[in-house]
C-alpha cells in the first residue's frame, strides 16, 4: 500500500476560463500535518473543497486512502472538514448543532457530544445560540463538527482565523494531539505562517492555482537556515577571495550581494579575509529566513496568504 494517504494527479478546477486549481500533484503522507500556504485566491479553498467532496474537479483525479477516484465515495465519510466559515445553524446551541451533525453521521450519544465540546473548550456554553458566539467560538465549534465520526483525514481551511492568542494555542494543541494520539492526517491552511510552522510536518505552497513547492519541514528548515549576506563593490573579486579560503556554498544574488551558506560562525574571519584581499566590503550580516520570508521569496510578492 502507498505511504501516501492522499495523492492528486493533475487536479484542475476551472470556473469559466479561469483555472482556480491548475494541475496540482500533491502528496500527503499518513499521520502528517500538511501546511498549505498560498495567497488569497491562490486556489487553497477550491482545492480543499475538492478533497472534501464539496466540489468536483474539472480535470485530473485523486486517490484517497488507497482508493482510486472512481471508488472515492466509499471513503468519503472518513474525511472531516472545516472550509471557510463554520457551517452552523445560528438559532441552535453548540450542543444542538453537534447533535444534529452526530445524528447525521449515526454516532450520536450525549456523552460523545459532550466530549467533543470539552475537547474544543465549549462545554460551558449551555443554551447560548451559536449566532451569539464570538468568531473564535464559532471556529472551535466548526472544528468539533469536523471531528464528528473521528475522520482519518481532517481538512481545515484557516481554522485559527479570528482566534485570540490563547485560542490559537488551544487549537494548535488540539491539532497536534489529534495527529499524535489519533494518528489523524491533517491538511491545514493558515494565514499565520509562523503558527503553521509550529505544527506542520510538511508544506505545500500554491500560487495562481499551481503547487510550486512541496517539501517536508526538515527540507524547509534547511532552506531557511542561517547564512551570511555580504554587500560588496565587485562580486567577481569577492568570489575569487572566497574560493581561496575554500568557501564553495554560496549564491550570487545580484552584482553586489552574495549569500554564504557555510561557516556562519567564522563570519568575522571571512570579512577580514575579504578586506585583506582588496574587496570593498560595504555590509555584512548574518540572517535566517522565516517561513514567511521563504514564502515571499518563492512566490515573488508581498505576503497575502
Amino acid at each position: 500500500m502507498s505511504e501516501y494517504l492522499l495523492t492528486t494527479r493533475n487536479l484542475t478546477k476551472t470556473f469559466g476560463k479561469h483555472k482556480a486549481v491548475d494541475g496540482i500533484n500533491m502528496h500527503i503522507k499518513k499521520g502528517s500535518i500538511y501546511g498549505f500556504i498560498g495567497r488569497n485566491g491562490a486556489g487553497k479553498t477550491t482545492f480543499m473543497k475538492i478533497i472534501s467532496g464539496l466540489s468536483a474537479p474539472s480535470e485530473g483525479e485523486f486517490s484517497l486512502f488507497g482508493y482510486p477516484y472512481s471508488e472515492i465515495s466509499k471513503v468519503r465519510n472518513r474525511v472531516g472538514c472545516l472550509i471557510e466559515a463554520p457551517g452552523l445553524y445560528p438559532d441552535m446551541s453548540a450542543f444542538q448543532n453537534l447533535k444534529a451533525r452526530c445524528i447525521g453521521s449515526g454516532v450520536y450519544s450525549k456523552k460523545y457530544v459532550e466530549e467533543l465540546l470539552e475537547l474544543v473548550g465549549l462545554s460551558n456554553t449551555g443554551h447560548k445560540r451559536s449566532k451569539k458566539f464570538s468568531l473564535g467560538m464559532k471556529q472551535r465549534l466548526g472544528i468539533a463538527m469536523a471531528l464528528v465520526g473521528e475522520p482519518d483525514l481532517l481538512v481545515l481551511d484557516e481554522p485559527i482565523n479570528g482566534l485570540d492568542p490563547q485560542g490559537i494555542v488551544e487549537v494548535r494543541e488540539i491539532i497536534q494531539r489529534l495527529a499524535k494520539e489519533n494518528n489523524m492526517t491533517i491538511l491545514i491552511s493558515s494565514h499565520i505562517l509562523d503558527e503553521l510552522s509550529k505544527i506542520a510536518t510538511h508544506y505545500g505552497i500554491i500560487n495562481n492555482g499551481k503547487l510550486i513547492k512541496e517539501m517536508s519541514a526538515e527540507e524547509m528548515m534547511s532552506e531557511c537556515k542561517e547564512r551570511i549576506e555580504i554587500n560588496v563593490d565587485d562580486t567577481k573579486h569577492a568570489l575569487t577571495a572566497l574560493d581561496k579560503i575554500g568557501i564553495t556554498k554560496y549564491q550570487v544574488v545580484d552584482s553586489h550581494h552574495i549569500c554564504i551558506m557555510e561557516r556562519i560562525e567564522e563570519s568575522a574571519n571571512i570579512n577580514k579575509h575579504l578586506v585583506e584581499s582588496g574587496v570593498a566590503l560595504i555590509e555584512s550580516s548574518i540572517c535566517g529566513e522565516e517561513l514567511e520570508d521563504y514564502y515571499i521569496n518563492l512566490t515573488g510578492g508581498a505576503v497575502n496568504a
Partner: peptide
C-alpha cells in the same frame, strides 16, 4: 447557514 458543508462532502449518494 452553510451547515451542509459539514456533511455534504461525506454523502455517498
Amino acid at each position: 447557514s452553510q451547515f451542509i458543508k459539514n456533511y455534504g462532502g461525506q454523502l455517498k449518494h
